Measured scan of single mutants.
Amino acid sequence: KDKDLLKGLDQEQANEVIAVLQMHNIEANKIDSGKLGYSITVAEPDFTAAVYWIK
């Protein structure tokens, strides 16, 4: 199951987060929520590491 990592990002921010996570071998998903911006989700086992790397 995926957990929400970040919400309300613009496309550039979302792409930067995806890139950082991929560099650390964390699979992440970018979801277009329309006017609400983009959300990033990661698998539950990767959540703690993902939070660490996006600081």
Rank of each mutant, 00 (worst) to 15 (best):
L21E: 00
V20R: 07
Q11M: 12
G34H: 04
Q11K: 11
I26G: 04
D4P: 13
I54S: 03
A50C: 05
N15Y: 07
Y38P: 00
S39W: 10
S39A: 08
K3T: 07
D46I: 05
G37M: 06
A49G: 05
H24D: 00
L5P: 02
I18N: 00
K55L: 14
S39V: 12
A43C: 06
L21H: 00
K7F: 12
N15W: 07
D46L: 08
K7I: 13
D4R: 12
L6C: 13
H24P: 00
D32A: 07
Q22D: 04
S33P: 03
N29D: 06
F47Y: 12
S39Y: 09
Q22L: 13
A28H: 05
K35G: 11
K35P: 14
N25Q: 07
A50W: 02
D4F: 15
H24I: 04
L6M: 11
K1A: 10
Y38T: 01
A14Q: 00
Q13E: 10
G8C: 10
E27W: 13
E27S: 14
L21P: 00
L5Y: 02
L21T: 01
K30Y: 07
Q22H: 10
V51F: 08
T48V: 12
L6D: 00
K35T: 12
Y52S: 06
M23N: 07
E12P: 04
A28I: 04
D32Q: 09
N25W: 05
D10M: 07
E16D: 10
Y52T: 05
I18D: 00
V20K: 09
L5G: 02
L36W: 12
T48M: 13
L6G: 02
S33H: 15
D32R: 07
Q11Y: 12
I18S: 01
N25P: 00
H24T: 02
N25R: 06
M23Y: 10
N15S: 07
A28D: 03
V17E: 00
Y52E: 11
G37H: 05
Q11V: 11
F47R: 02
I26T: 02
G8K: 03
D10L: 07
E27Y: 14
L21I: 03
K30S: 09
I31D: 02
D2E: 11
K7T: 15
A49R: 10
G34N: 04
Y38S: 01
I26V: 04
K30I: 15
I54Q: 02
A49H: 08
K7Q: 12
N15F: 08
W53L: 09
T41E: 04
G8T: 04
L6R: 02
A43F: 06
V42R: 00
D10E: 06
A19P: 01
K3D: 04
K1N: 10
K3E: 05
I31N: 07
W53G: 00
I26R: 00
F47I: 04
N25E: 05
L6F: 11
K3S: 05
D2H: 15
E12I: 09
A14L: 04
Y52R: 05
A19R: 14
G37S: 06
A49N: 10
Q22T: 06
Q22I: 11
I40A: 00
D32P: 08
D32N: 10
F47V: 04
L36G: 13
S33D: 15
D4Q: 15
A19V: 06
K3M: 12
D10S: 15
L21Y: 00
S33I: 10
S39I: 14
K35N: 12
K55W: 14
D32V: 06
L9Y: 03
E44Y: 08
E16L: 14
N15H: 07
I40G: 01
G37P: 02
S33Q: 15
G8F: 09
D4L: 15
A49M: 12
L6S: 03
L5A: 03
A50K: 02
T41C: 06
A43R: 13
A28L: 04
E44G: 09
I18A: 03
K30Q: 07
H24N: 05
N15D: 13
L6N: 02
D2Q: 15
M23H: 08
D2P: 12
E16W: 15
A28S: 06
V20P: 00
S33M: 15
N29M: 11
E27G: 09
Q13G: 06
D46F: 09
I40H: 00
L9H: 01
N29I: 12
V42C: 04
K1D: 08
A43S: 10
I54R: 01
D10A: 07
L5C: 06
I31G: 02
D4I: 15
L6E: 03
D46R: 02
M23A: 13
A19H: 10
K30P: 03
D4T: 15
I18E: 02
P45W: 13
E16I: 13
K55N: 14
A49V: 07
T41L: 09
